[in-house]
Amino acid sequence: MSCLFSCKKKNFILTSIHGQQIELNDSIADMDSITNFVAPYRDRINEILDSTLAYAPRVISREDGKYNTTEGNLMADIIMSEANPIFKSRTSNEIDFVLLNYGGIRSIISKGNVSARTAYQVMPFENSIVIAELTGKSVRELVYFLTNSGVPHPISGLQIILDKNNNLQSVNIKGEPFNEDRTYFVATSSYLLTGGDKMSFFKDNVGVTDVDYMIRNAMIDYFKKIDTIAPVVDDRFIKL
Rank of each mutant, 00 (worst) to 15 (best):
F5A: 07
F5H: 11
K9A: 04
F12Y: 12
T15D: 07
I17R: 13
N25F: 09
S27D: 15
I28M: 07
I34L: 10
T35V: 14
Y41Q: 14
R42S: 10
R44A: 15
I45F: 06
I48M: 11
D50N: 09
I60K: 04
T70V: 01
G72E: 00
L74A: 02
M75W: 00
A76L: 01
A76K: 03
D77W: 05
S81Q: 08
N84V: 00
S89L: 11
R90N: 12
T91Q: 08
T91A: 06
E94D: 11
D96W: 10
V98Y: 03
I108L: 12
K111C: 01
G112H: 11
G112A: 08
V114L: 02
Q121G: 06
V122P: 06
N127K: 01
L134K: 12
T135W: 10
S138K: 15
V139S: 11
V151H: 07
P152H: 02
P154G: 04
I155C: 01
S156C: 05
S156W: 03
G157T: 03
Q159H: 10
I161L: 09
L168Q: 07
Q169L: 10
I173M: 02
E176F: 05
E180Q: 06
A187M: 06
A187W: 03
T188R: 02
L193H: 12
G195T: 06
G195H: 03
D197W: 02
K198F: 04
F201M: 06
F201Q: 05
F202H: 07
V206S: 10
V206K: 15
G207P: 04
T209P: 05
I215M: 14
N217W: 02
M219E: 13
I226S: 06
D234R: 13
I238L: 11
